[in-house]
Computed example of a mutant assay.
Amino acid sequence: MNHAIHACDRPTAEALYPFDARGVAKRFRHAAIFGALESLMPGETMRFCNDHDPLPLLGQMQQRYGDKVDIQYVQREPGAIVIDFTVVG
């Protein structure tokens, strides 16, 4: 099996916190992600890693946080999705 290399496997900057959803049970993922986001201070970033594009999650985040969280794809390949969620001050 060919595994894609995730950007989460690389070192991160000080205010960038990795969150690897691949290891979280599906039924707990959204609650864990929202909890992690709500623990960030303005200017901090959570680097989210997953094996699929989380479009339903992104829709929920947009409804919940609006423009208070900036969403930027770092990597968007089949099997290797990495998104930076930055809390806007």
Rank of each mutant, 00 (worst) to 15 (best):
Q62T: 15
L57D: 14
D70F: 09
F34M: 12
P56G: 09
A7F: 09
Y17H: 14
I81C: 13
Q72P: 00
P54R: 03
P78H: 10
P18I: 02
M1T: 14
Q72T: 13
Y73D: 01
R22D: 06
S39V: 01
F48M: 10
V87A: 03
G66E: 08
N2D: 05
D53C: 13
Q72M: 07
K26L: 10
T86M: 07
G89H: 11
A25R: 13
D20E: 07
A21S: 15
A25D: 11
L55G: 12
E77F: 08
D20I: 13
V87H: 04
Q62M: 12
H3D: 04
M46L: 15
I81N: 06
M61P: 05
A4N: 06
F19V: 11
G89E: 11
H3F: 12
R64I: 09
S39E: 09
G43L: 05
A21D: 09
L55S: 15
V88H: 02
V88A: 01
G23E: 12
A25F: 07
A36E: 12
F85Y: 03
P54M: 06
G43A: 04
D9T: 14
F48W: 14
G89F: 02
F19I: 12
F48Q: 05
R64D: 01
R64V: 08
R47G: 04
G89C: 03
G79R: 07
Q75W: 05
D20V: 13
N2P: 15
G79L: 09
V24H: 07
Y17N: 02
Q72W: 00
E77A: 13
Y17K: 06
D20P: 07
G66F: 10
D84W: 03
G35M: 01
I33F: 11
A25S: 09
F19P: 10
G35I: 00
K26Q: 11
R22I: 08
T12G: 06
G23T: 15
V69H: 01
A7G: 00
A32C: 14
V69Y: 04
G23N: 12
E14M: 02
G43C: 08
T45F: 01
T86F: 01
F85A: 00
L55E: 15
K68E: 09
G59A: 14
P11D: 03
Q75H: 04
A80H: 00
T86R: 11
V24Q: 07
A13F: 00
G66W: 07
A21M: 12
R22Y: 10
P11C: 03
K68R: 14
R29I: 15
V74D: 00
Y17W: 07
M1R: 01
P42D: 03
Y17E: 01
D9Q: 14
P54V: 10
M46A: 11
H6W: 10
A32T: 14
F28E: 15
F34R: 10
P78D: 09
Q60V: 13
P78C: 12
P56S: 09
R27S: 12
T12F: 05
M41S: 13
A4V: 15
Q72H: 06
E38A: 06
A13V: 02
A32F: 03
M41L: 11
V24K: 08
P56F: 04
T12S: 11
H3N: 07
V82I: 06
S39Q: 13
L58S: 08
V24I: 15
E44P: 07
R29L: 13
Y65I: 10
